[in-house]
């Protein structure tokens, strides 16, 4: 009844697809999201590494909007009752993945800022020490032509 072959058949198309107006709106919205994300990448406001999940989601939405029957098929596949629950579930998984990705990046940034702070502290001490040891050289370092 809900095999992939049936879902893609003409009979299913007549029974399951969205009304044309809804379909157009859904397709337009997903295209807008996709373009918006790509525009942010073009303006260098969003790094490519963070855009991947967003582009994937926008593409997923586009496919579902073009062919609602796939959503119905997915709903049966995961055992949900309503197609809307499948959408919510998908949204939730997407948000969790995004949050996890941020946590990983945050850990890396934490590590890097900490090690940078330590390195800067050591370098500052080194610089202070050098200036103390060689006070004259430190002052006219800029225009010194080999003394």
């Amino acid at each position: 009844m809900t095999s992939l072959a049936w879902i893609l058949s003409q009979e299913a198309a007549e029974n399951l697809d969205l009304p044309p107006r809804q379909r157009v709106v859904a397709v337009l919205v997903s295209i807008l999201i996709l373009l918006g994300v790509l525009e942010l990448v073009r303006q260098r406001k969003l790094r490519e590494e963070y855009s991947a999940l967003w582009v994937l989601t926008a593409l997923g939405l586009l496919v579902l909007a073009l062919n609602y029957r796939i959503l119905v098929w997915l709903t049966h596949l995961i055992g949900a009752v309503l197609p809307t629950s499948t959408l919510f579930f998908g949204g939730l998984v997407f948000l969790m993945l995004l949050a996890l990705q941020f946590s990983v990046r945050l850990s890396r940034l934490t590590y890097r800022s900490r090690s940078l702070t330590r390195r800067v502290a050591l370098l500052e001490e080194e610089l202070r020490e050098l200036k103390r040891r060689f006070p004259e050289e430190g002052e006219d370092l800029g225009n010194d032509e080999g003394d």
């Binding site: 900490r114 702070t117 330590r118 800067v120 502290a121 050591l122 500052e124 001490e125």
Partner: peptide, 25 residues
């Protein structure tokens, strides 16, 4: 004494780590 100052608070472990690096350096 020699003083090495962190720009901001990093916690006890990092403070020791800075000291260990200083010792090796």
């Amino acid at each position: 004494c020699k003083v090495v100052s962190h720009l901001h608070n990093l916690g006890y472990g990092s403070t020791l780590l800075t000291g260990y690096h200083y010792a090796l350096l």
